[in-house]
């Protein structure tokens, strides 16, 4: 205890329940820090962090950058759209070039699953996976579980249903790992065309009926339909998807108890959730965003504390 078991955060699969609890306890303190009049601490003033985004991102990138700056780290940003990746440079070369500028930590989003794991074997810096293809998005899962803990007091024993496009979602996989490690029960819900094969082997049940799933759960995590990753048609029309799987006030009013609605963003209003639901008291979508900064500060702080420069 008292220390993370890993040097990198590549996925929830690779960390333990004790690691998650340590991250949560540390995030509690950072959440207090970011609500102060001056929201900054000097801990990481001699650490340089590179944010490498080989894929588009708005909130994750902003959230990481804010977390890094709140910790006083030096930050450099890189996005693939404006880089030499287009000129044919390999991932390892790109990153090694950046590390040659004395960078201590890399936050990376990449379209290929396993990019973070690959990099961790070849370079000498702490790596935080900010999403690799349809594989994992660990900080999102941590902030989701942290938001459930904050809203409901604990994650253990809670029932969580993940609704929507499970097939293309790295958030779903990381969430399943995190919630199960913390003792929650997890179901997934959506059209069978958007369910990965063998998902039951992770110990989650598939439910195709939204009303049944919502009646069963305490929390519903609504995933975005990732149109940009769909090269074939997975359901007849958006209208039909909304009729079957869209959460509206009408759907919620028929449930036997109130439930908590989460969404990792960006929301397609009127698709996964209606505007009324997204803005209602049941939704904790903006709390998730605030918690995202605290969680990322905690992860960066805990990993940075393992970088020992002064022993050399």
């Amino acid at each position: 205890m008292n220390d993370l078991s890993v040097k990198h955060l590549l996925g929830i699969k690779y960390i333990s329940e004790a690691d998650i609890q340590l991250i949560f306890e540390t995030a509690d303190h950072f959440k207090e820090v970011i609500n102060r009049p001056i929201k900054k601490v000097p801990s990481l003033r001699d650490i340089t962090i590179a944010n490498l985004f080989f894929e588009n991102s708005t909130r994750t990138k902003l959230s990481f950058e804010l977390a890094e700056k709140r910790l006083s780290a030096d930050v450099i940003n890189f996005s693939a759209a404006s880089s030499s990746v287009k000129k044919g440079e390999t991932l390892e070369d790109t990153v090694n070039n950046i590390l040659a500028m004395k960078v201590d930590m890399v936050v990376m989003r990449h379209p290929n699953p396993g990019a973070g794991v690959f990099l961790s074997k070849h370079i000498n810096a702490s790596i935080i996976n900010a999403g690799d293809g349809a594989h994992e998005h660990p900080t999102q899962a941590l902030l989701d579980a942290y938001s459930i803990r904050e809203k409901l007091g604990d994650v253990a024993g809670k029932r969580v249903v993940i609704v929507g496009d499970i097939l293309h979602s790295r958030v779903a996989l990381s969430n399943i790992y995190a919630l199960q490690k913390l003792g929650a029960e997890v179901k997934v819900c959506g059209p069978l065309t958007l369910m990965p094969k063998h998902i039951e082997s992770l110990g989650v049940q598939v439910e195709t009926n939204l009303a049944k799933a919502l009646n069963w759960c305490d929390v519903a995590n609504m995933l975005r339909i990732q149109n940009e990753r769909m090269e074939i048609t997975y359901f007849p029309s958006t209208r039909e998807y909304v009729q079957q799987y869209g959460v509206t006030t009408e759907v919620l009013s028929k449930l036997n108890k109130p439930i908590t609605i989460m969404h990792p963003g960006p929301i397609n209003r009127g698709v996964e959730v209606s505007s009324e639901v997204a803005d209602s008291e049941y939704a904790i979508i903006l709390n998730q965003v605030e918690n995202g900064v605290a969680i990322r500060m905690a992860v960066i702080y805990l990993l940075a504390s393992k970088i020992k420069q002064y022993e050399k």
């Binding site: 008292n2 220390d3 306890e25 540390t26 303190h29 820090v33 601490v41 000097p42 801990s43 990481l44 910790l71 702080y301 805990l302 940075a304 504390s305 393992k306 970088i307 020992k308 420069q309 002064y310």
Partner: peptide
């Protein structure tokens, strides 16, 4: 904790 001057200098992680 977050203002200490011995971050990353000892074996033990600084817990807040």
């Amino acid at each position: 904790t977050f203002y200490r001057d011995d971050f990353r200098r000892g074996d033990k992680i600084l817990q807040a």
